[in-house]
Nucleic acid binder design. Structure first.
Length: 577
DNA sequence: GCCGTTTTCGGCCCGACTGTTTTCAGTCG
């Protein structure tokens, strides 16, 4: 069975970690990490790249890595990994997950105390055995123990939706401290990653110490981790870490860029500066010792000969090259979205009536609403049988006659059954304005079967949109095994739009694959998957995923007007005959 | 392990903070 890009990347990542723990040349480890990243974001099947003999042409793949990755994808094994991991217990790599534990400490703990797992580390810390080790002490030991505890409780990552409200509150407080000139969110939260590890805030202020002092005295702090002259760090309820950095006003633009990341984007940018004979760091852009001033990020990018790169794109996935060539897409904005898609009513598992939904959508500035309740197979959600479908159609017809400034489309979230058949016959499916198909059961099929199942459903001309294409639940459930590129190709072929489900725990399709889909020629639809009033709040997350996937408003169905969307749907219907 | 006309050896981003030290190592971003 061929390996996925992600699996190949995981092996390379593992090699890097083991090399670090063994104390090998850190740059060798970095070469493996960088190769892992490249494979993960290849946008092409690594098996194909290897088969075509093109791996060696990718930057970062020299003779050794090309040979090793070729061996891995053709045989499923890498002898080198077996060699370097022989004698090392499996749990050792898990130790790296503990905050303040890096490869050197893993090596130390293993060699001096025989610690092979997080459990053993915790035991040793509780027994006070870590403190006596060279370079360690009581405080380091306590810190590691606290880190293990925190890790246990929260697995160290948070949904964007959990972190955003807290980030906005703390940001507003910090921005309001006397003497603060400018402030910005940074890090993964500014880049709108689907999950975040901590919250970064950057500040320019006359009196840095006062900012840190005010920050570490805020409400809701569980404990303060660090409070220096220019940097403060604290854990807020319910366990989210917030870092504040204060910089000089003249460094603000460079610092904002630096602390927004991603790390990979920054490394690439620094290299670019170096190529020009300059130096870029968090303090500024320099020609020798002479600063090349930039008042904001836009000016900083301009100095580098680039267009402004929106934070969501800063993942080192080609945005730097595109900005240099002035070829970045004009990304979609939340305000561009005019239709509320994938909305459940209280006819199935939603909590609002059609009338309430219409009022909510209107108050939020939408001009049309796509009602998509569950089909009958999703019995736990009180899925609609045909008779209830027809009753809902009648109700929508009545409502549409009465509503002003908002129209309702008759839609359905039709279940894709195990064999790829849809949950209703074509006759009733043809009666909907718009059909959204989705998998809700049998998640554990082999990848080939799941792929065939979904592609069969897509080939039914009644299907207009594929909802939550991988079924993942962030921090809870992995995506089901599926060849997503094959699914996206089928969407492009059949002109079926791909949903970006905006539920904070889904954000499915993943932005990395949104990019892939865009390149394959797919259209997209931001689906709220709304069941309650508050779910309308998450449209911005869906748009953020679209932006991270490089989408312009022309790529997104709900950026059309109701009339344009209607035309798009009838165009599909004409072609299906 | 990768890379490349200032190259085939010697770099590879680098600074803040903490805790341990008494001048520095490890981690993190």
């Amino acid at each position: 069975m061929p390996m996925t890009n992600r699996e190949v990347a995981a092996v390379l990542e593992r090699v890097g970690q083991i090399l670090e723990i063994r104390g090998e040349n850190p740059f060798k480890a970095r070469a493996y990490y960088s190769a892992a990243r490249t494979i993960e974001s290849l946008g092409e099947d690594v098996n194909k790249v290897v088969a075509d003999g093109e791996l060696g042409q990718i930057p970062g793949f020299g003779e050794a890595l090309t040979a090793k990755v070729t061996e891995l994808v053709t045989t499923g094994r890498m002898k080198y990994l077996d060699e370097i991991s022989s004698g090392l217990p499996d749990g050792l790599l898990g130790l790296l997950e503990v905050p303040d534990v890096g490869p050197k400490k893993v090596k130390l703990f293993y060699e001096k105390l025989g610690i092979k797992s997080v459990e053993e580390l915790e035991e040793a810390a509780r027994a006070g055995r870590l403190a006596d080790l060279p370079g360690m002490g009581e405080k380091s030991q306590a810190k590691i123990l606290a880190g293990i505890q925190q890790r246990k409780e929260h697995k160290g990552r948070w949904l964007l939706s959990e972190a955003l409200p807290l980030a906005k509150r703390i940001f507003a407080e910090v921005e309001g401290v006397k003497g603060v000139r400018r402030a910005s969110l940074g890090g993964s939260i500014r880049r709108m990653r689907e999950t975040i590890g901590d919250i970064d805030i950057l500040v320019s202020a006359a009196d840095p110490a006062a900012v840190i002092q005010a920050f570490t005295a805020l409400d809701g702090i569980e404990r303060v981790l660090a409070a220096g002259d220019t940097k403060g760090s604290a854990v807020f309820k319910p366990g989210i870490q917030v870092d504040v950095r204060v910089v000089e006003e003249e460094s603000y633009a460079a610092a904002q860029h630096y602390f927004t990341g991603s790390k990979e984007h920054n490394v690439h940018m620094r290299q670019l500066a170096k190529d020009r004979g300059w130096k870029l760091n968090e303090y500024g852009l320099f020609d020798g010792d002479a600063p090349l001033p930039a008042k904001d990020e836009k000016a900083l990018f301009a100095r580098m000969g680039m267009d402004f790169v929106p934070p969501e794109l800063r993942e080192d996935r080609g945005e730097i090259e595109a900005a240099l060539a002035h070829g970045l897409p004009a990304l979609a904005e939340e305000d561009d979205v005019r239709g509320a898609f994938h909305i459940h009513s209280n006819a199935t598992d939603g909590s609002m009536t059609l009338e309430q939904l219409a009022a909510e959508a209107k108050s939020r500035g939408y001009s049309y609403l796509v009602i998509s309740d569950h089909s009958r197979a999703v019995a736990v959600a009180n899925g609609l049988d045909e008779e209830r479908v027809r009753r809902q159609w009648a109700e929508i017809k009545k409502l549409n006659a009465k509503l002003k400034g908002l129209s309702i489309f008759r839609s359905i979230e039709v279940d894709i059954r195990k064999d790829g058949a849809l949950d209703y016959g074509d006759e009733i499916l043809r009666g909907f304005d718009c059909c959204i198909a989705a998998v809700h059961s049998s998640f554990t099929m082999p990848s080939a079967d799941m792929t065939a199942r979904i592609i069969k459903a897509l080939s039914n001309p009644c299907v207009d949109i594929l909802a939550h294409p991988t079924g993942r639940l962030l921090l809870e459930r992995e995506p089901y095994a599926v060849d997503i590129e094959a699914v996206l190709s089928a969407c492009a072929k059949h002109n079926v739009a791909v949903e970006i489900n905006a539920q904070p725990s889904r954000l499915d399709l993943d932005w990395r694959f949104v990019r892939t889909g865009r390149e394959l020629g797919c259209r997209f639809a931001v689906g709220l998957d709304a069941h309650h009033k508050e779910d309308f709040d998450w449209a911005g997350l869906g748009v953020a995923v679209a932006r991270k996937g490089w989408l312009a408003k022309g790529d997104i169905l709900n950026c059309m007007s109701a009339a344009q969307f209607k035309r798009w749907l009838s165009g599909r219907r004409r072609r299906r005959r």
